[in-house]
Amino acid sequence: MNGYRYLAGIVTGSVSLLKGMRVTFANMVSRPHTVQWPRQTAPLPARFRGHIRMLADEETGFPRCFACGSCARICPSACITVQGRKPGDRKKKVAVRFLLDFTKCSLCGLCVESCPARALAFSRDYALAGYRDTEFRTMDLLEGLASPFQF
């Protein structure tokens, strides 16, 4: 009986090993799942959160932000610095400085939710890397937007 079990163990063990080898061989001859970034791109999820960005007003092209500071107040990591001024002809303030310290941000999204002007959104910058951390310590979100203060 014992001898039978010994031999049966060897046979069943070998069969199970062969089954495992069949799986890996099938893997090997099937098509790889790799997306060859950066030559190809894998789809990003629709709700992907990159660093926040500032949206522009459709009419004027100025930043939507009126520097109320609620984002800076609610941010748990204190990564946002906002300053605004009133342009001469308007009632509302417009942001003149909007700095993000992305190295402290943990993408919780409280700033986006709390913004009364809906001025903030998540960007789709997914592959940031740099040689110095200072590039990301003060990211100027107003870059590229028009400003009413260009004299």
Binding site: T24, N27, M28, S30, R31, P32, H33, T34, Q36
Partner: peptide, 12 residues
């Protein structure tokens, strides 16, 4: 071989 068995390409 390792790459292809993992559904990868390996060195490319």
């Amino acid at each position: 071989v390792a790459g292809h068995m993992h559904f990868r390409y390996g060195p490319m």
